[in-house]
Amino acid sequence: MKKLITLHDMINLEMVLEHVDGIIVGQDTYGTRLTHSFSDEELISIIHEAHERDKDVFLMANQMMTDDQLEGFGSWLMQFQHQPITGVIVADLGAIITSNEHGFQGRVIYNPETLATNDYDFNDLTRLHVMGVYAAKEITLSDLTRIGTHKQVKMFMVGHGHLNMFYSKRQLIQNYMDFLAEPTRFHGKQNLTLIEEHRKEEPYPILEDDAGTHVFRRHVMHVINHLDELSGWLDYMIIDTLFKDDRYGALVGQMYRYRDVDLMKRIQEDYHETWDEGFFDKKTIYKGKGGEQ
């Protein structure tokens, strides 16, 4: 099982990569929920530096895309066609097809957030010759294991970080500030939270970027207690440091590498975090009053 991590500042690349196997970077033209939006030149520099260290590099281009965006995306990808990129992570089937058309067939990873909930649907993406698929975040460890033991492509999973639970194309914070008749000052800020009126103890991180608005779980997902099990079938475990910093990433990488429980406690204290295991042991109920779909 390889571990991948996100990056805030390219001057920290060496530090962040020390304990992990690869990096995920992107640009807000086609990526979203990024720790940082890197320029084309910075991306190429990061790709080469990581490659020289024998590390994997993944480009994050996970926006939902319209026809016009796909056209631009294809052109943008061309400059990376001959770069030593391990893969391109996308969230849109059209983006897979576009990536394939631009020389990335076999190097595309599909991250549909919530949709790969069973082994059939997970493996369905072999039709588009993807390198891998992100398993859904909201399924149990038992379901993940079944997918992992029946997978026909590489399996990816966010193993550490604030998991995304809402992605709207609307600029919801901008709209709110407009409603208040106040200037917008929160676009791209990573220190915002939402507190629901009946859940005062649960601040949910919220981020508005160029692609829309995103709300995240309060607790940090972690898998420190399941590394042996995951290693049996998971190919890539992602450490997402959105809302944190590169020092945090380096520490978390070190923690997973050495399974350092003391370090885990120190990180939780330093960053005032509560960690949990997401839906590993939690089954959602579903016979309720459904919304409009």
């Binding site: 957030e113 919530t114 975040k137 909201e138 992605y167 709207s168 959602t284 409009e292 779909q293």
Partner: peptide, 13 residues
């Protein structure tokens, strides 16, 4: 739906 349909897990969480 306020989120992209199918990609929301606010309710789950």
């Amino acid at each position: 739906c306020m989120s992209f349909s199918g990609r929301c897990s606010l309710s789950n969480n």
